[in-house]
Amino acid sequence: MKKKRKMSKKQKTYLFIIIPVVLLFFMFNTWPMLNGFFYSFTNYKGYGSYEMVGFQNYIDLFSDTRVLKSYLFTFKYAICGTILVNVLSLLMALALNAKIRCKSALRGIYFVPNILGGLIIGYIFSYIFTYIIPAIGQTWNIEWLQNSILSSPAYAWIGVLIVGVWQAVAMTTIIYISGLQTVPGDVYEASRIDGSSKWTEFWKITFPLIIPFVSINLVLTTKNFMMVFDQILSLTGGGPAQSTDSISYLIYNNGLDGGQFGFQSANAFIFFLVIVIFSIVQQNITSKKEEQL
């Protein structure tokens, strides 16, 4: 009996801790989300009065070219970014995990882009794209380098992609390195005795053993690239000709300043669904892969 009373006292402490936490979370996460959901059914501008418009915003979303373009850009950017970042990072991680000199210094240096803020990095690269690369193009008479990539509607997204990849590789590489370190060394010795080449060794031994890390990285990079904001703000501002309007940037720009509070709330909600569906799909693939191991 004494034990039971003690349990309940413990329970009280637990509740005393967890209730404020849940309330805080509800207040600044769930409540604004519900609010946004509500506004997505109105024609609210962000100020003044508004009316309920039913599903009109959602219907309009699918015929709004600017919204559709922003989804196209974001998906294109996220897919290319994820593939590039993961291939480069895996190569980097293999190199940084090999028998090399100055290993920890090199690892330290290659991690630097990750700790620097996206906004300032964007500004620095914006200068490189606008002044330095065209200057190189002029000196060596390379025509396609003479104009800033950021002012070309067709290629500006590649400029944004370069900056995004430059920053993301740092983090992804570190995760791959910690993955490679979980592979025991004697596995390799066995394969070396069998005389298999480095290439088959990688695909037959290393890669299957680090698949959990591959899936972590795929999830993280895709998510981060889908939510791209800082780089857009500092590099292109969504331009030229709205060719680099990311979804987050469009919601920020038109929702807060452009008088589309209600409409962009609907957009935000669809974006949320996209993220959720994407995460569920990724998680399913991940758990299946891990079972195989």
Binding site: V22, P32, M33, N35, M227, S248, I251, S265, A268, F272
Partner: peptide
Amino acid sequence: GFKWVYLYLISGMFVPFAILMMPLVKE
């Protein structure tokens, strides 16, 4: 009960800032 609380808090990982942004400014 606590398991549900846990899942509830964890679910916040899927919520992009973009969807909270505008209502949060008001709030």
